[in-house]
Design a protein around this nucleic acid. Sequence first.
DNA 1: TCACTTTCGATATATTATACCGCGCTCGCA
DNA 2: TGCGAGCGCGGTATAATATATCGAAAGTGA
Lengths: 161, 161
Amino acid sequence: MSSSTPHLHIADHDHAKCVAGALAAARDVCAQRGERFTELRGRVLELVWESHRPIGAYAILERLRADGRSAAPPTVYRALDFLMSVGLVHRIESLNAYIGCAHPGQRHASQFLICTDCGTAVELDDPAVAGALAQAAEKRGFKVEARVVELSGHCASCAQG
Amino acid sequence: MSSSTPHLHIADHDHAKCVAGALAAARDVCAQRGERFTELRGRVLELVWESHRPIGAYAILERLRADGRSAAPPTVYRALDFLMSVGLVHRIESLNAYIGCAHPGQRHASQFLICTDCGTAVELDDPAVAGALAQAAEKRGFKVEARVVELSGHCASCAQG
DNA sequence: TCACTTTCGATATATTATACCGCGCTCGCA
DNA sequence: TGCGAGCGCGGTATAATATATCGAAAGTGA
Ligand SMILES: [Zn+2]
Ligand SMILES: [Zn+2]
Ligand SMILES: [Zn+2]
Ligand SMILES: [Zn+2]
């Protein structure tokens, strides 16, 4: 009910393939890094990829419980922390929510375009933005370790679909 | 104790003047917009400007109580919401904290450089960054309404002062 | 002074996140 | 094949951040 999906404005796509691809990439990344891709971690990643909208930790928790599984907040946060540590999930700071990484296994910057109408978040890896940020920081002698770049507004479809 | 100030790496400056300037600008902004700059709002703004480090809502709350004033969380959040609504304070999403705006009363973009060593946050209004972001969004037909740009790392002084 | 609006005090509660403990499974290795 | 070290996870408790709501007080304009 509350979560009946507003139209997904991301160009139509085969979302099952989308999720399968994410899970396959996850297996690869973990194998390469000698990390364990457990059943729980897989399920949490799957839930994060349920849509292209950022999802909150407690929403993930509810879905785990709906699976019949016993779960508490640490269950979710541990899995999310792991998935973030290996670069499979990003945290959206302005929403306290999590989203699957669009470029798993690749070194990349990310910038998010978050639609406040349909809720979707698109991850960019825009070199001009990354470059401008790097220059701005360097100019002030600042050594960057982490970047949060989140633009909120209206996606192309919602703005005037 | 816990909050004994680590060295402030912002180039030495007369911070009293810094705070006084912020309060004066605040009066102007509120007068221009027909908003009331109450004693509480002034005190909260002063506390936000206590240093150039982002400060949490509950830290502000403690200081209000230390003044002998009765205060609860809504006291602080109302004042912060007001100050943000008139552009005198920014929220740092990646820290759940608040900082005084460096360009009150002016239309500006802002990007923050947050030092994880000394805690200071510097607000930039870098046109190249703003331009690159605007272009990246426009290219995808995205209408931007709000921007969160926060780089964490080491400031020039801390990196190798 | 009176009606109206805004600000504020106060209480309760929601939402997001972490600290900690102990068990059992996995995996490397003898 | 058995064993120990470490990791992942269930479970409980609690911390940290934020909002909903209501009524009283104070400012505002007529
Ligand atoms: Zn998809
Ligand atoms: Zn949209
Ligand atoms: Zn100053
Ligand atoms: Zn520093």
